[in-house]
Amino acid sequence: MSKRLPLLTLAAGLMLMTGLASAEGTTERERIGSPAENTERNVRDEGGATLTPEDQLENESDLQITANIRKTITDDESLSVNAHNAKVITRNGRVTLRGPVDSAAEKTRLQAIAQQTPGVSQVDNQLEVKAK
């Protein structure tokens, strides 16, 4: 008998006792879901209809627009950490803003920053006000 078998048995028993796993092999998080998990958002992003940072075009103009918006956002100390971390995706002058922000005012402020940036033709504001 391997010395590892008792350790594996002990580990499995602890997981069952703490609720990290069930006898059926599913984890507690899989069974009831976790609000921090973002599964719905991740599934939405997989469909291809929603832009993600990987969709950022690599042409010089779009990269410069994104860099200018990002710098303006991060330089604004009145904005929250969430706003500073908003996703900025530029494709052919069209900017998409995504992610959580702390208030409707921040959502509006980030949109204004993007609209005032030279080279921007349109802003798709998909920012979400974080529930408190």
Rank of each mutant, 00 (worst) to 15 (best):
E24C: 05
Q115P: 00
N68D: 15
L51D: 02
N38G: 05
L97F: 04
K107W: 08
P6L: 09
A36L: 11
L97R: 01
D55G: 04
A36D: 00
Q122F: 13
V81T: 15
E40D: 11
L14S: 13
H84L: 01
E54K: 14
R29S: 15
L127Y: 01
S78W: 01
R4A: 15
S121Q: 11
V95S: 04
I69K: 09
N85E: 10
A12H: 12
A105V: 14
K107V: 03
L127N: 01
R29L: 15
G33Q: 08
Q122D: 09
K107H: 08
P6S: 03
I113L: 07
N68C: 11
S78N: 07
T27F: 05
P53G: 03
T96E: 00
Q115C: 08
L127Q: 01
L7M: 11
N59H: 07
L51P: 00
V81H: 14
T50Q: 05
G47N: 02
L20T: 06
P53W: 03
A114P: 00
A67S: 14
T90Q: 01
V88N: 02
I113W: 06
G47L: 09
P6Y: 10
G99S: 02
L63Q: 11
S121R: 12
L63K: 13
P118H: 14
T96A: 04
M17Q: 11
T9M: 14
T74M: 15
I113D: 01
V101W: 05
V95C: 07
V43A: 12
E54F: 12
D62H: 05
A36G: 05
Q64P: 00
T74C: 04
E58I: 10
L8R: 05
G119Y: 14
E46S: 11
S78F: 07
P53S: 11
V43T: 08
L57D: 01
N68T: 15
E106I: 12
K87M: 07
T27I: 07
D102G: 07
I69C: 10
D76N: 15
L8S: 10
T74F: 10
R44M: 12
T50R: 08
R31N: 07
A83F: 09
S80L: 06
Q56Y: 05
R29I: 15
R109N: 13
T18N: 10
A12T: 13
M1S: 11
N59L: 06
T66L: 12
A11K: 09
D55M: 10
A12F: 07
L110E: 04
M15D: 05
P6W: 08
R29V: 15
Q126G: 06
E106Y: 06
Q116R: 09
V129K: 06
Q122R: 15
T26A: 05
L110K: 04
R91H: 03
L16F: 10
G48W: 02
V95H: 02
A23V: 11
G19H: 08
S121G: 10
R91Y: 00
N59V: 04
T9V: 15
T27L: 03
T74Y: 07
E28W: 11
L20H: 08
N59Y: 01
T26F: 09
D45R: 14
T52K: 03
I69A: 12
N82E: 12
I89H: 03
E30F: 09
V88A: 02
T9I: 15
L57A: 11
L8P: 00
S78D: 04
T117Q: 02
H84Y: 04
T117H: 03
V129N: 07
D62G: 08
A49H: 06
T96H: 02
Q126V: 02
Q116V: 09
A105K: 13
G47I: 00
